[in-house]
Design a protein around this nucleic acid. Structure first.
Length: 510
RNA sequence: GGGCGCGUAGCUCAAUGGUAGAGCAGUAGCCUUUUAAGCUAUUGGUUGCAGGUUCGAGCCCUGCCGCGCUCACCA
C-alpha cells in the first residue's frame, strides 16, 4: 500500500474521495464497461440523424477520461476524451437526480474515467453533446494530470500551459501522452512509417525476417556492444549492433531479397541523434549494387512520404525539404573539396591528411587512422550542410570493411550515405561477397584498431560468416536506415528522444 | 568525459542578498445551454541534495544529483 505521507496534498484529497465512494458502495475501479459509440461515432451518428427525418434520437453510452468540468449553477458541462477525440457531456439534476449531480461535483475529478449514458443533442451554443441520464466511475485517478491553463499575461498574451519539462515528459511518458495530443500523433506517424516501409518492401518481393538479438559474436557496424551472459550455458552474449551479417547469410541460403525492422543496441554516447537502443531497417537485395540501392532508396522515401504525409515535401526545423526529386549524388572526394577544402585524393596516407587538416586548424585525433579522419570531415563539413536529400558516395576502404571496392581503386569502396535535414539517414553499399577478400578485411580492421583508437573498437572475427560466404553469396546491395531518424524528419523533431516512447535517461532517485 | 545553462506550489512561471509570489489546477460558495465559462473567498513550499560565506541566502561560493544545449566520442 502506498505510504500516504509520500503523496502530495492533492493526491491525499483524491484518496479521500475514493474512500468516500467506497463507503457509499460505489466501486471506483469496476470490472465491466459499456460503450455503444466512440466520441466521434456518436457525433457522426447525431449529425446523420439531424438530416434524416426517419431517425428519432441517438441514444449512446460513451466512455472516456474527464478533461474538464464546468459547473454552472444546477447544470454541469464536461468534456471527456477517448481514443477518437473529445465529446461534451451535459448533466442536469432533472435528468440524473440532484444526488448524482452532487456526487459528480464532490467525487469526480479531471483525469478520472467515466461512463455516461444518455441521448445526443445539440446545445444552444451549437455543440453536439450527450445529455446524460446516468453515469458511473470507471477509474478514479489519484494523481492529477500535469495539465493546466495558463494565466492571462498583461492584456493579450494567452498561453495554455501544459507539461513541457523534457525530463518529466520522458520519465513519465504516460503523463506526456495523456495531456499532449501532438505527442500521441508522433507515435501514430511512427507506426504509419513502419507500415508504409513494410508495404513497400513486401510489394517489391522482399521477405521480412527476424534474426538474433542475442549474438555470440557481434558485427556489421562500428560500435561498442552491450554484453550479457547466459546463465545455464555460461556463455557471453552481445546485444546486436546491426543485423547485417545475419541477413547476408540468408542471401547465401537463397533468399534473394530480405529485410528486417528491429532494435539495435550500441553502448555509446547519448545525444540528440543517438539513443542506446534504436530501430533500424536493413535490407539486402541480390543482383543489385549501390546504384540500384540509391534508386530504390529514393523510391522508398517518396513512397513513405506519400503514404504517411500524403505529400512529397515536408518542413524540417525551418527547412523546406522536397522528396519528389531525384537526390543529387556527390562523390565523397569531390564533396570534401567543395565543403571542407581538402582533397583526400591528394592525401593518400594518414600523416599527409592529418597535416592538411591541421593546416586548416581542424582538430584531429592523433591516433585516428585515415578513414576516421575522413569520417570526421564528413561529420563536420558535409553532414550539417546537406539539408536537401543527398547521396554521398565512394567511401574510404578502411572504414567500410564489408563493402566491395570500386573498379580500379582498391582504397575506395562502393558505399553511400544518404543525408537529409543535416543528419545521416542511411548507409549502404555494394556488399563484399569475396570470402578471401572479406577475411583479409577483417584482419586489416583488427590491426587498424589494435594500433588505433583502442580496444573498444576491435571486432572479433566471425568465422561462421566467412564460411557462409564461401558457399557463395550472390552479388548484392545492402542498406541500413534509422527508423527513429526518419521519424524525426517526418515529425519535425530535433531530438531522437521525441520519437522514442521511453528514451533512455539516467537513474534518478525519487 | 569537457564547457555553458537550468532545477522555486500539481502545471507554467515571477521574486536587488532583506517577510517566497502569480495564473491555472485544488477547496468553499453563487450561477439551468457553458466551452480559455464568469464572479467571490481561500488552501497550497524541505526553492533538486549536502555543505559554506553572511546579521540575514531562492539569489553568492564549493561539492553532488538530474535535465537541456554543445564539444569530444560514435569503421
Amino acid at each position: 500500500m502506498v505510504n500516504e505521507s509520500e503523496l502530495t496534498k492533492l493526491e491525499r484529497l483524491r484518496l479521500e474521495k475514493l474512500k468516500k465512494l467506497r463507503d457509499r458502495g460505489i466501486e471506483p475501479y469496476p470490472r465491466r464497461t459499456l460503450r455503444t459509440h466512440t466520441s466521434a461515432e456518436a457525433i457522426r451518428a447525431f449529425e446523420t440523424a439531424e438530416t434524416d427525418e426517419n431517425v428519432e434520437g441517438i441514444a449512446a453510452t460513451l466512455v472516456g477520461r474527464i478533461r474538464s468540468i464546468r459547473p454552472m449553477g444546477k447544470i454541469i458541462f464536461s468534456h471527456i476524451e477517448d481514443g477518437a477525440g473529445k465529446v461534451q457531456l451535459f448533466f442536469r439534476a432533472q435528468d440524473v437526480s440532484q444526488e448524482q449531480l452532487d456526487l459528480l461535483k464532490t467525487s469526480f475529478d479531471l483525469g478520472d474515467f467515466i461512463q455516461a449514458e444518455g441521448e445526443m443533442f445539440r446545445t444552444r451554443a451549437g455543440e453536439i453533446s450527450l445529455r446524460v441520464e446516468s453515469f458511473k466511475m470507471l477509474t478514479k485517478a489519484i494523481t492529477p494530470l500535469p495539465a493546466a491553463k495558463d494565466e492571462q499575461v498583461d492584456d493579450e498574451i494567452v498561453r495554455h500551459a501544459t507539461l513541457s519539462d523534457p525530463e518529466t515528459r520522458y520519465r513519465q511518458r504516460y503523463a506526456d501522452l495523456a495531456v499532449n495530443p501532438e505527442v500521441r500523433e508522433i507515435f501514430r506517424t511512427r507506426a504509419a512509417i513502419c507500415r508504409a516501409l513494410r508495404e513497400f518492401f513486401d510489394s517489391h518481393g522482399f521477405l521480412e525476417v527476424e534474426t538474433p538479438i542475442l549474438q555470440p559474436i557481434y558485427g556489421g557496424a562500428a560500435a561498442k556492444p552491450f554484453v550479457t551472459q547466459h546463465n545455464q550455458l555460461k556463455q557471453d552474449l552481445y546485444l546486436r549492433i546491426s543485423f547485417e551479417l545475419y541477413l547476408k547469410r540468408l542471401l547465401v541460403g537463397g533468399i534473394e531479397r530480405v529485410y528486417e525492422i528491429g532494435r539495435d543496441f550500441r553502448n555509446e554516447g547519448v545525444d540528440r541523434t543517438h539513443n542506446p537502443e534504436f530501430t533500424q531497417l536493413e535490407f539486402y537485395m541480390a543482383y543489385a549494387d549501390y546504384n540500384t540501392v540509391m534508386d530504390l532508396t529514393e523510391q522508398m522515401v517518396l513512397f513513405v512520404a506519400e503514404n504517411v504525409l500524403g505529400r512529397t515535401n515536408l518542413t524540417y526545423q525551418g527547412h523546406e525539404i522536397e522528396l519528389a526529386n531525384s537526390w543529387p549524388r556527390i562523390e565523397l572526394a569531390e564533396g570534401l573539396v567543395e565543403f571542407a577544402g581538402i582533397d583526400i585524393q591528394k592525401h593518400t596516407d594518414t600523416a599527409s591528411l592529418a597535416k592538411a587538416m591541421s593546416a586548416k586548424d581542424i582538430e584531429i585525433d592523433p591516433a585516428a587512422p585515415r578513414g576516421k579522419l575522413i569520417d570526421s570531415l564528413i561529420g563536420n563539413f558535409l553532414e550539417p550542410k546537406l539539408i536537401q536529400p543527398t547521396f554521398i558516395y565512394n567511401y574510404p576502404r578502411d572504414i567500410s570493411p564489408l563493402a566491395k571496392h570500386v573498379s580500379g581503386d582498391t582504397q575506395t569502396v562502393e558505399r553511400f550515405e544518404g543525408f537529409v535535414g543535416g543528419f545521416e539517414l542511411c548507409n549502404a553499399f555494394t556488399e563484399l561477397n569475396d570470402p578471401i577478400e572479406q577475411e583479409k578485411r577483417f584482419i586489416e580492421m583488427g590491426r587498424a584498431f589494435d594500433s588505433g583508437s583502442g580496444e573498444g573498437d576491435r571486432h572479433p572475427m566471425d568465422e561462421d560468416y566467412l564460411r557462409a560466404m564461401r558457399y557463395g553469396m550472390p552479388p548484392n546491395g545492402g542498406f541500413g536506415m534509422g527508423i527513429d531518424r526518419l521519424t524525426m524528419l517526418f515529425t519535425d523533431r530535433a531530438s531522437i528522444r521525441e520519437v522514442i516512447l521511453f528514451p533512455h535517461l539516467r537513474n534518478k532517485e525519487d
